[in-house]
Lab assay of single mutants.
Amino acid sequence: MQRVNMIMAESPGLITICLLGYLLSAECTVFLDHENANKILNRPKRYNSGKLEEFVQGNLERECMEEKCSFEEAREVFENTERTTEFWKQYVDGDQCESNPCLNGGSCKDDINSYECWCPFGFEGKNCELDVTCNIKNGRCEQFCKNSADNKVVCSCTEGYRLAENQKSCEPAVPFPCGRVSVSQTSKLTRAETVFPDVDYVNSTEAETILDNITQSTQSFNDFTRVVGGEDAKPGQFPWQVVLNGKVDAFCGGSIVNEKWIVTAAHCVETGVKITVVAGEHNIEETEHTEQKRNVIRIIPHHNYNAAINKYNHDIALLELDEPLVLNSYVTPICIADKEYTNIFLKFGSGYVSGWGRVFHKGRSALVLQYLRVPLVDRATCLRSTKFTIYNNMFCAGFHEGGRDSCQGDSGGPHVTEVEGTSFLTGIISWGEECAMKGKYGIYTKVSRYVNWIKEKTKLT
């Protein structure tokens, strides 16, 4: 034993070699072989497995989906700052455009905790909710729209109204504003409101030439003092309507412009014939205590009207009353817009006519005020429907199939267009061939041609 100890002390290297040989010859039971080890760690190889990531292109799944990435790591994937920024906006807080917040056709661009709407022409605001041009839906104005110097929408209202708090709607500024039905039992019968379409306001006024200088022999019209197929109006439903009495009662109609003036057809009036105007009328054979009678003290036909040349060209006249009318729910003026808007309103496509005229061709006159909704007829169809001249200051309205029309005794009465609950004068009943005849239409004086003249002559002093 002493000898062994001496050998170990003198030859430590020998001992180490012996131990190493023993270990190498022993069977290893701690580690699995290569094949079995792979069965336990069965993990798919990654895209760049075996390579240094710093030297390969980034992978979106590896960089940002398996674990949260930084902007720089995302930049490695896209290799483009702009594309990385677009991805980053949604990656950080989701897609803010998912709810489609942009209105009126706006395009949404996502941002971090926010979004941006790219608005089409005519709109602005956070969600493109603000109209900035009158060309689109009248700028959301209830009545009139004008573009300011910086191309912003400025709404306005006709006389007797003021802008509401929203700067879009119009509200009454006087007790009985024009064009409004205020009798409670008839307010439910107000005709369907007309909503502004998209309009090209630059070209809204037709490029028409008034044929002022045409000389033409007097034409022989049949029954051209021209509501057939209409309905009984309720008291106060058309408070701007008046009836004219002269040699015979209810020979023509008219509309209240203001307390002192009536507008009617020029062919209705004769110099030297006494005319009485009755406002607030409903049943011409009954006294309903809503009527107001006034005498006409002055007749002003349009300066281009000449019955000797043509009885229905420039067929418009103004009547001055001896005493002002007292405005109330049964006696209310009709609204008159400017030339541009009167023309736009007419193009809405349908209007209402009213009167006490004959209820059928050569038949009896109506006792109760009649009204009828009539569609506008395109000019080409209008011209083809008659052998008589249709001037540019006239328009056609009615039904091709016949059966409904204005008729004798309705002449001078109103053709009105309702705009968001307020009625505007767009025409004056003038003439036609018979009444409600198939293929024939009622012919009306186009008020847009005469609004400046009306307003100039009827100013209240």
Rank of each mutant, 00 (worst) to 15 (best):
E73V: 10
L244M: 07
C69L: 03
K68T: 15
I299M: 11
E159D: 11
H415Q: 00
A436K: 15
E320S: 02
Q143A: 00
G349K: 08
S350Q: 11
I429S: 15
Y391G: 08
V353N: 02
E418F: 09
G13I: 14
S430P: 03
V202G: 11
V183P: 09
Y450C: 02
T16S: 06
R180A: 05
G253L: 08
Q90P: 11
C69P: 04
V416T: 11
V4I: 11
N113S: 06
D198G: 12
G357S: 13
E129H: 04
N127G: 02
G363R: 06
E142N: 04
G402R: 12
F176I: 09
T133F: 04
K455M: 07
N113Y: 05
Q370D: 03
W88F: 15
K146H: 06
E72S: 15
E420D: 14
N304Q: 13
A366K: 14
M394W: 07
V202H: 07
M437V: 14
Y391M: 14
T218W: 10
V4L: 12
G432W: 06
L367Y: 10
R449Y: 14
E82C: 03
R379D: 08
G272H: 11
C407Y: 05
G439F: 04
V326H: 12
C141M: 00
N113M: 07
R191V: 11
Q90C: 04
G432F: 05
K339I: 07
H302I: 01
A317M: 03
I316R: 00
E54K: 10
S411F: 11
V269M: 08
G122D: 07
Y305I: 01
F78S: 15
A9F: 13
I210Q: 12
C407K: 04
F121V: 15
R83H: 15
I390R: 08
H282T: 12
H303T: 08
Y352A: 06
R46K: 11
V56L: 12
F144T: 00
F388K: 12
V377A: 07
K109D: 04
L244N: 02
E456L: 09
K146F: 10
G280M: 02
N113P: 03
N42E: 08
E208G: 06
T158K: 02
K457I: 14
A307G: 13
C145S: 02
N258F: 02
S430E: 03
T186S: 05
G230S: 09
S148Y: 06
E171L: 12
V92F: 09
K362N: 13
K188Q: 11
R75W: 04
C155L: 00
I344A: 14
P333H: 02
E66K: 06
P375V: 08
E259V: 07
N306F: 04
I17M: 13
V368P: 09
V416M: 12
C117L: 00
I7Q: 11
P12S: 13
D93T: 08
V174P: 02
F71W: 10
I136E: 14
R43Y: 05
I428F: 05
H314M: 02
A207S: 13
E340A: 10
G229K: 12
K137Q: 12
I309P: 04
T16W: 13
V353D: 01
I336E: 00
R449N: 14
E54R: 15
C145P: 01
I428H: 03
L19D: 02
K339S: 15
L376V: 07
T332D: 01
G179K: 01
T190N: 06
D150V: 07
A26V: 10
R298H: 05
E270N: 12
S187F: 11
I429K: 13
D315K: 00
S217D: 12
M6K: 14
M394V: 12
L23A: 05
T215Q: 09
T158V: 12
L460F: 13
E433S: 14
V447I: 10
H314V: 03
G357Y: 14
E259M: 05
C97I: 01
I214H: 07
C382P: 01
F55L: 10
E165Y: 11
Q408M: 12
T225H: 09
V77L: 08
Y391L: 15
V278K: 06
I256H: 00
L60Y: 10
Y161G: 01
A149M: 10
I428E: 00
C178V: 01
K152P: 07
Y450I: 02
D232C: 09
I299Y: 09
G13A: 10
L318N: 00
I443K: 03
R46H: 05
N343T: 10
Q185H: 13
K457P: 02
T218Y: 09
N452Y: 08
K45G: 14
S448D: 13
D212Y: 11
P414M: 10
H34G: 07
I284E: 05
D33R: 10
T133P: 04
Y305W: 10
E270M: 08
F399E: 14
N245I: 11
E116F: 09
Y161N: 00
E433L: 06
Y91F: 13
P324G: 05
N147F: 12
F360P: 12
E420P: 01
A307S: 10
E259H: 06
W356K: 11
R298I: 01
F176M: 05
I344W: 07
S114W: 04
H314D: 05
R180F: 04
T84P: 15
V181W: 08
V447A: 09
E54P: 15
D322S: 07
Y22H: 06
D410M: 15
S49R: 07
K51F: 04
D249T: 13
K45R: 11
S204H: 10
E320I: 00
I429E: 12
I40R: 14
D322T: 03
